[in-house]
Design a protein around this nucleic acid. Sequence first.
DNA 1: TTGTAGGCGTTATCAT
DNA 2: ATGATAACGCCTACAA
Lengths: 336, 336
Amino acid sequence: MSSLVEVARAAGVSVSTASRVLTGSSHPISAKTRAKVIATAEKLGYSPSALARALVSRSSRLIGVLVSDIVNPYFSVIARGIDDVASRAGYVTMLSNVDRRTSTEISRLRTMRDYRAAGVIIAGSGFEADPLAPDLAVAVGQAKEQGIQAVSLTSRDLGCPVITADNEGAAHDVTDHLLSLGHRRIAFIEGPPGMTTSKQRRDGFLACMNAANLSDVARCLPGGFDFEAGHLAAMRLIARPPLPDAILAANDEAAVGALNALRQAGIDVPGEISVAGINDLRLARFVGLTTVSLPLYEMGAMAAQHVIDALPGDATTTLLSHRVIPRETTARRPPG
Amino acid sequence: MSSLVEVARAAGVSVSTASRVLTGSSHPISAKTRAKVIATAEKLGYSPSALARALVSRSSRLIGVLVSDIVNPYFSVIARGIDDVASRAGYVTMLSNVDRRTSTEISRLRTMRDYRAAGVIIAGSGFEADPLAPDLAVAVGQAKEQGIQAVSLTSRDLGCPVITADNEGAAHDVTDHLLSLGHRRIAFIEGPPGMTTSKQRRDGFLACMNAANLSDVARCLPGGFDFEAGHLAAMRLIARPPLPDAILAANDEAAVGALNALRQAGIDVPGEISVAGINDLRLARFVGLTTVSLPLYEMGAMAAQHVIDALPGDATTTLLSHRVIPRETTARRPPG
DNA sequence: TTGTAGGCGTTATCAT
DNA sequence: ATGATAACGCCTACAA
């Protein structure tokens, strides 16, 4: 609307004086000029141009967020965590959907750099043997040279701090929960092939089974993170009896897909078989799914705080804690 | 990284020339200088400052999005629609959660104005008799004076174009679907009290019932847009038999809550009673819920396009079409 | 305590 | 075809 010069002119002071009072500078200002400036700024409806401010200060109050797909509740919860602390601190979130494509991550990262974002939070998981991973790391490095904070929400070799959930531990702990209910033959429906997060969760599952000397009855089958993948995997299981004692899916949505297939086939859950997931999304509550609650919101919130506080710590990895949430899709293994 | 002046200097040309070739201006440039500039820009990894560009052009390529809560899939689908067309056009989305608070909408709108957003898309519904509504309208007006496009995704008196779903028509049409299955005594679980969208959906339900001369057996009960509200409303219904023939909830999540209560009470859906919702979120597919598909993604996409194309049309209202999606929670009314 | 002036990185106008 | 220069709106030494 009205610019600083206009306010200054109207208040009969210089721009610097106006700037000083309006930015709350510690520079000494007489009480009366301060009052006058504030009053006229108020009257003129002055609001500083975030753009000009960012241009001169070489850093905006924008926080970039790279998610795979905001429609996926896993990411929307993270985004909410970010935005809550961001907006509380006067920052605003720039969101971008990258559909798990590293090339898109790179180009969006560049865009956010062009807006001199205070920081960029990379929420999606990486893939093993991703040929573009080094390029992303380079882009991250360049961003940092420009004073842009970068934080990854999955363990990814990007040369930036990592704030993440303990995927392996979470998978381990639900598996352990299943074992504690007396289940032995457990099937694990894997996440998307090649995805780091998928691998971590499978590793957690296998580690737990191995520790219980049950690696011979641990079974992994290809799956994915969506309903259909879970459904399909369960169908395959149903097609080749006997059923395992329990099924653990790599995430909640796939677990619900499996649950659905099982019940459609007339199989009683948890009477005949137990089912569990990972994430504890809202959906899990709706269907009474046993799962592990991951600190998604907290990851977002902490990452945003990290950016705002301009914290250092490039090689740092922060592991936030999870918690098994027993619900109605798991039960003690029936005798026999 | 390197600025335009650096590129110009390195290429041995003036900034204006460099600017002209790098912006793809139609201004005539000799082939060789053009090549030289492009080469050095490439070598120096030049990328224009979106900030400086926005400052001088008085408009950025940022699109503001105001949602109630991005975790709510209703909004995340809209956000996805926006971001898809935005990013395709080189724009980036600024997201803000306002938790249905008009005061927050106003302040966030101001923030986006301070970034000289190309436009702001207001996704959340308004409330009747909202004392702050005029203030929001004023803020929208000021934004427009600055050349910021504004688009509302619900019918709201903001002095800006409206691109929305036909909530009333959608509710009418599912109700009609229920009637076509032979149901007569239908209960409607309302949305959040006072919310415009709630009212529109209830109106659509009542209009359809009236038209069928069934207003005496149409029943509205207080509810909300979440699982718990739907659950509670259904519990109330169960507590006072006889059950209606069918239940229509103001949205999918509440419908799933109702479904859950019913089944927990041992009531067969759709054997004894039919249940339907509105929105057609992913969740509806998972549980086989009959619902109406609203053009959420399209609303977002079209609104973003509107902003990008800087279309006029202040008093315009665009109604996008919906479609009833019959699934497994509704069936023909059992005889007797 | 207040003011002057230079610069942040672009674009656009006006010369050359 | 190319170049100098004035904005855009703000911050921050440096002066006064």
